[in-house]
Write a protein that binds this DNA or RNA. Structure first.
Lengths: 227, 227
DNA sequence: TATAAAATGTGCTATAAATCACAAAGAGTA
DNA sequence: TACTCTTTGTGATTTATAGCACATTTTATA
């Protein structure tokens, strides 16, 4: 399915934004757009890296399934992001799985072209580096929070993470089931329900279906701070 | 303290290894070697990134001190590594602190020269990318383990991490106090003592002072797997 | 629209790990 | 060597969270 053109694409990544017309032509010839339906798995942990996958629109969950069948969701990825980029530069094996939280548009980019740009165009390499570094820092920040805080603090953190980093809004449809939310935060499904009920009873948030609205963000920040 | 020469340095990073003679000369003119005593803080979280710091010899701990005065050790870094490289490409502020677990040799490299190499030399950029990606994956792997396993599994993991990733030996002086080990694993100091005693009583490991020897690595792997 | 299946909420119980309290062992110093 | 200070080890207690059981709601499907 080839229809769009990288040159006029509105969803360019930071890195692709530094390419010139000629390079965008090359990219265009080595880039295939595709649609993914909600719930579909885009990429599976353990698979060889064959293409770079770029998320044009929609939300994706990055996760692993452990030996004991428990899942851990590492992060929610939003549009204009690469999926599993860090695996490209190491052992060429994907380390996490990716599935669509809603209908998506993605692009498959030829690995060789991507590497060629990195090696030939310093600006491009720099932007990719910035991207990987930023992602690493963000995820580690959440990791530190998770390992030092108790359940209320973690929920406050994740609600702020959704609001400030993912949806950029105090009100958002958070796309995940309770079980998935539990897997993201690292608590049991039952306690996920309990904490959300408690937060709603205290009028910190308002829940209607899958939609959450943050009512008292200052209190949430306080809970996050106190752990 | 300028005495060594980048050209003949035995401790070159992967990235610096791809530089040519001329570039090594440039590096040499913008690189200052320094010694750090055990216990000294090399870099503090919150500080602006002024130089790239390269760890030539010795072990370093990467950590954060949280608001509640609790510390979290993120990783142990061994020789031939960069400290806080991911912060260079983002907001230019260090996000973690680094202190010496033993006497070290480090190099301060001018940020501009480093960036220049990235932009002008694709191989170099690629190696830096590979480095940042690899580190990110390693740390995340440990993060996933920590959040899905209980205390015995975590200890098994950290012992295997020391043995396989850090010291490359079944017997090693692990440099950390019990409190630091607890901060690395994310458990209490008391339970750190208890688990180590238990493992020693079961003859899985042998402890003498700060030295640990792994006696039953297969059993340790089994404990790691079972969580 | 009815029915089955899945997801969610909630009280109760079990349990893993933190915390407390203090003893013992080491390290550093006069 | 004696004394202090720090680190480490271990039992008893507390606490946070997981797990269980089951009711309720929501979603999917015939």
């Amino acid at each position: 399915m080839k229809g769009s053109n990288c040159k006029i694409c509105e969803d360019k990544s930071c890195a692709v934004s530094v390419l010139n017309k000629n390079q965008l032509d090359i990219l265009n010839n080595n880039c295939v757009e595709s649609k993914v339906k909600k719930g579909e798995i885009i990429l599976r942990a353990g698979a060889m890296v064959s293409h770079i996958i770029y998320l044009r629109t929609g939300y994706v969950k990055e996760y692993v399934v452990c030996e004991n069948d428990k899942s851990k969701i590492l992060q929610i990825i939003k549009h204009h992001s690469y999926l599993g980029l860090h695996s490209l530069f190491g052992d060429k094996i994907n380390h996490y799985s990716y599935s669509a939280l809603e209908d998506l548009k993605i692009c498959y980019i030829d690995v060789n072209i991507f590497n060629q740009f990195i090696k030939e165009k310093g600006d491009f390499a720099y932007e990719v580096l910035a991207y990987v570094s930023r992602e690493s820092l963000n995820n580690f920040f959440r990791f530190i929070n998770q390992s030092n805080k108790r359940i209320n603090g973690r929920f406050a953190d994740v609600l702020l993470y959704f609001s400030e980093k993912i949806f950029n809004n105090l009100s958002f449809n958070f796309l995940l089931s309770r079980q998935e939310l539990a897997d993201l935060i690292g608590v049991s499904r039952e306690n996920t329900a309990r904490v959300l009920s408690k937060f709603e009873a205290d009028r910190i948030i308002n829940i209607s279906g899958k939609n959450i609205e943050i009512l008292k963000i200052d209190l949430l920040k306080k809970i996050s701070k106190n752990g």
